[in-house]
Design a protein around this nucleic acid. Sequence first.
DNA 1: GGCGTAAGCTTACGGTGTACTCAAACGCGA
DNA 2: TCGCGTTTGAGTACACCGTAAGCTTACGCC
Lengths: 226, 226
Amino acid sequence: MKQASRPGRGGRPAQISVEQITAAAVDLLDREGLEALTMRRIGAHLGVAAMSLYRHLPGRDAILSTVVNHLFATALADLDAGPTWTGALTRFAVAYRRMLLDHPNAVPLLATHPVDPATAVPVLAGLLESLTAAGVDQDDALIRIQSVGVFTLGHALAQVGAHPGAADADADADADADADADDAAGADTDAADAGQDPDALDYYQRWFDAGLQALVTGFDRRDAPA
Amino acid sequence: MKQASRPGRGGRPAQISVEQITAAAVDLLDREGLEALTMRRIGAHLGVAAMSLYRHLPGRDAILSTVVNHLFATALADLDAGPTWTGALTRFAVAYRRMLLDHPNAVPLLATHPVDPATAVPVLAGLLESLTAAGVDQDDALIRIQSVGVFTLGHALAQVGAHPGAADADADADADADADADDAAGADTDAADAGQDPDALDYYQRWFDAGLQALVTGFDRRDAPA
DNA sequence: GGCGTAAGCTTACGGTGTACTCAAACGCGA
DNA sequence: TCGCGTTTGAGTACACCGTAAGCTTACGCC
């Protein structure tokens, strides 16, 4: 054992925690992109040497996993079930997608590092129950949830992988962050995502809506016998 | 210009080509995993120094892109349209998925590096036409194709990212490759994929079938007005 | 004060992508 | 036949990466 010991006994007090490492990694990821997530940069962002991170997590990949789990869990923390499972499934997809577009640099991470079941299950328990309560078999319910999940993730992958800046932004970390170019045309969403052509944004939104609705209604139709 | 010059004039004859680099990268990827795709290893696999690759491609990322485009194009080279667009869309998804499972180490690459439109469009032209011929609007047809595409890719990401060996195989590159453990139970597919629990394999197959069918029928239902 | 313990730091190693510079190998005009 | 231009491959070097090993520091407790 090299980590996560009982803090009951003596020892030098820790000045960083797993949560702080995760938060620093997310911050660095959002601000400087995926390739900024190096042990040395994360450590420096916390005022600590790179090797000190290994006292709290076994390696870089573990940090990326905590980032993935943290983003997933916080994005879907308060999903209410609602009356219909189709509505619940749709709200899940929308919330998931909002997180992905809020953290575009994290999308490749979500694609590469699967969410730990130990964090996914409690978060999606309500959604699962809202399906089984409607008479959907447990396995089928899982399939429907996961289908919507992978569609949403795959869609976000296509969206964030498409625009010119790609996943790594280097030149625009300091300059203008003002939104004066935001003309009051009034899109349906409150437009938290930036840096993409409005036409493209609209296309992806329509694509997402159409695909999600097809998926949900396609599943719904199977419940009706004829 | 540092590459791709006209070979009409003199100069030292090239001993490697972009196609050979791509093939070597695919071979290395399938055999040794994603982290084996190093400039030095690819060069060594071709009997050439690492820096020589830069005479043919601008960098590592370009190699990865050629791999992605090559796999995508060859996997979907001969998609026949057939009478119905739902059938064509399903065959596209099945062929795409077969390629992804045949090259599990390439799945993260497909997720990260979008397929170049210049290679995707001709390959999917027949499929697109089979949709528009059925009266589907061009934009809507694109949305349906891409929805199936991202679902298939996302599904494959979940499948290959799940099993314990993950994307990098180190210890099983030389040992047993015999398939005597293949009992003649006879799954629907001819079981080209290996290294995964048969129960899990069956689950992913059912999941894929259910999601794909829901997606296709969900789109189909929108064509009927009522 | 001494001790046990845990956290953080320092150093070092092998590996990575790639910029830069030079040698080699061809077709061609003189 | 001999440069010559042109293109390709090789060699060297650099900054950076993840991380293994050992050391120092800072605490609670006896």
